[in-house]
């Protein structure tokens, strides 16, 4: 693809992401007009000085409640979609997604266990939770990968089976923890919203930790675009064209787990983002990771922002867990993919 076309595609996706940001900021319990949001934002970064046509309460809602949540959603989407591209490219498996192969469940279990530990290591608005989420994610991805590996290959079917089994095990352990949680006076709600996916950003400090992790991870992933392309040839094929496969494998699995853990630590288990977004991008723009990685990050951000907007407005004042929305969109898509390529799954 020509360089100019690539820049055009990425610019369009960037515009979509920013449009989604503003759209999602405008809607909620209180509707705030889009022009006002623009002016507030421009005033805030001190480029302009528009006369104030909004109330102080509206400004508080935008800057203290909506924007952190919407940006949180964007980061979750970027992280999950990028992790999806990384896992799919590395495992040469178009069904690999942090949710399906169990990485998300591992992260969530890690986080849940951390909530039960009496230690509170507060660090920049974060406790032990994100660290435990990361360890859970890395541990699970290596467990599933090794379970699924048969004679030097990782067949799609065994990867899906191992992922499902390990995910269910993790979910059961979490359910067990929930059951005993009232005896320990722990918030049942926080564990519950972990399981169904709910973007809970308490403030800017939390984003200040997540944002560098996610953006750093997305940028770092781009350095591996050539190697991910070469990995389409398989591990041996990639080695033949000069890729240090063993090293890359570890870096990519850890990076994907880190991105998943960053997302899970503020949103819980949101499924299908890492599956639907990379596939839609691959179908539209081709499988070259140099374009696919940034395109999936931008598209993933916009997708989760919109899903979260639907989740909190469609039945307002009640809020549907965002994971339900992404699953309603994503599950039929997954089944479509499974049917379309079913020859590969024959025993």
């Amino acid at each position: 693809m020509k360089r100019r076309n690539k820049i055009l595609i990425l610019s369009l996706l960037g515009v979509c992401l920013i449009a989604a940001l503003f759209l999602a900021s405008a809607f909620g319990a209180v509707s705030i007009s889009m022009p006002d949001i623009f002016k507030m934002a421009l005033n805030k970064i001190a480029i302009f000085d528009f006369p104030t046509t909004w109330t102080a309460a509206e400004e508080t809602i935008i800057f203290q409640i909506r924007l952190p949540r919407v940006i949180g959603g964007a980061l979750v989407g970027m992280a999950l979609a990028t992790a999806g591209v990384l896992f799919q490219g590395l495992l040469r498996n178009p069904m690999a997604d942090p949710y399906i192969i169990g990485t998300s469940a591992g992260a969530a279990l890690g986080a849940t266990i951390a909530m039960f530990l009496p230690i509170s290591l507060a660090f920049l608005g974060f406790g032990l939770v994100p660290i435990a989420a990361f360890l859970g994610a890395v541990g699970t991805v290596f467990l599933v990968y090794n379970l699924a590996r048969v004679g030097g290959k990782t067949p799609i079917i065994s990867m899906l089976l191992a992922g499902v089994v390990v995910s269910s095990l993790m979910a059961s352990i979490m359910a067990l923890l929930i059951t005993i949680s009232d005896r320990l006076h722990l918030s049942l709600h926080s564990v519950y919203s972990y399981l169904l996916g709910h973007i809970s950003v308490t403030g800017w400090e939390q984003l200040a930790v997540i944002a560098p992790l996610v953006i750093g991870g997305v940028v770092f992933a781009r350095f591996f675009a050539f190697h991910l392309n070469a990995l389409a040839l398989g591990e041996e094929g990639a080695a033949y064209v000069g890729v240090n496969v063993e090293r890359d494998k570890i870096v990519i699995l850890v990076l994907g787990s880190l991105l998943t853990a960053a997302a899970v630590s503020i949103s819980g288990l949101i499924g299908f983002v890492g599956l639907v977004v990379p596939h839609a991008m691959r179908l539209s723009f081709g499988p070259d990771h140099r374009l696919l990685l940034p395109a999936a990050a931008l598209g993933g951000g916009a997708f989760v922002i919109i899903a979260d907007l639907i989740a909190r407005t469609v039945m307002a004042p009640a809020e549907i867990p965002v994971g339900v929305i992404t699953a309603i969109i994503g599950a039929p898509f997954f089944l479509y993919l499974l049917r379309r390529t079913r020859k590969e799954y024959a025993f």
Partner: peptide, 12 residues
Amino acid sequence: QFHIPFAFTVSE
């Protein structure tokens, strides 16, 4: 032989 799981073109 090589099996390539994604839809790469020949020149890619």
